[in-house]
């Protein structure tokens, strides 16, 4: 087991992803399932950012003079960060949408238990 920042972050991310899947599969309450999805989101984002980390390098924001020469050896990868940035905002939209659907479903059946929604079950 090599202990480095990236490996620790990857392990944290994987555990969060598994926790999210676990919550989404086993919980009965719809709000809990949505919480599971948001944990899943967080884990995926951590994994993506950790994969872009370069050893001993710093953030890709060149605000000081000594970062502007030989930049490629001093910064971490900016692309995963940009992707995660958009993913987080979309994640908020998806979470809000799921919550409003849950609200609608509650208005229909007065229940949040996933087992009481059997309309499409056969």
């Amino acid at each position: 087991m090599i202990f480095s920042l990236v490996n620790i972050s990857l392990i944290i991310g994987i555990l969060l992803v598994l926790a999210g899947i676990w919550a989404a599969i086993t919980q009965k309450n719809i709000i809990k399932i949505i919480i599971g999805f948001s944990l899943f989101d967080t884990g995926i984002h951590i994994i993506m950012v950790a994969l872009g980390y370069v050893k001993n390098n710093t953030a890709p924001i060149l605000d000081s003079e000594n970062l502007r020469t030989g930049t490629a050896d001093k910064i971490v990868d900016p692309i995963p960060q940009a992707l995660v940035l958009t993913a987080i905002v979309i994640g908020l939209g998806v979470t809000a949408l799921m919550l409003v659907y849950a609200l609608k479903m509650y208005r229909e059946k007065k229940s949040l238990n996933i087992n009481s929604f059997k309309d499409l079950k056969w």
């Binding site: 990236v6 490996n7 872009g52 370069v54 050893k55 930049t71 490629a72 910064i75």
Partner: peptide
Amino acid sequence: FSTNYSEAEQLGIVAKHYAENAK
């Protein structure tokens, strides 16, 4: 991850292009 994956030592090709030419 713990046996085969270690931290990257340098940037990928696309990131290198961005780092050198973005200015």
